[in-house]
């Protein structure tokens, strides 16, 4: 039985016109890239480990945007490596959200 094609394996599939519009990167796009790059250069993880996690994000996330799938994949990889737990992520997000709402 042939291997099933992964969601990331796009070469040769039909596709529509290419959207050529240039977009500015948002600050969080650069932040997530920087956090990953620093950890990679310190030997906490490799680019191939992140790539595998990107390939394995849920389809709605995969289709949802480049940096969106990066953040989910990096979360998955950090949890897999036991650098953080999901509970810590949830708690930190709740705390950040509460702090922002209080500041408004």
């Amino acid at each position: 039985m042939p291997l099933e094609r992964g969601q990331h394996d796009l070469g040769g599939l039909p596709g529509g016109p290419i959207d050529l519009e240039e977009h500015e990167l948002l600050p969080w796009h650069k932040t997530i890239s920087a956090v990953f790059t620093v950890m990679r250069l310190k030997g906490e993880m490799t680019i191939d480990e992140l790539r595998r996690c990107i390939e394995d994000v849920p389809p709605d996330i995969y289709d949802g945007g480049y940096y969106e799938r990066w953040t989910i994949a990096l979360t998955d990889l950090m949890v897999e490596k036991r650098l953080i737990t999901r509970d810590e992520v949830d708690a930190k997000m709740a705390a950040l959200r509460a702090a922002r709402e209080a500041a408004e």
Binding site: I32, V35, T71, I84, V89, K92, M93, L96
Partner: peptide
């Protein structure tokens, strides 16, 4: 989520 990952890291 990005800010949470950064702060935890």
């Amino acid at each position: 989520l990005t800010d949470a990952l950064k702060e935890l890291s």
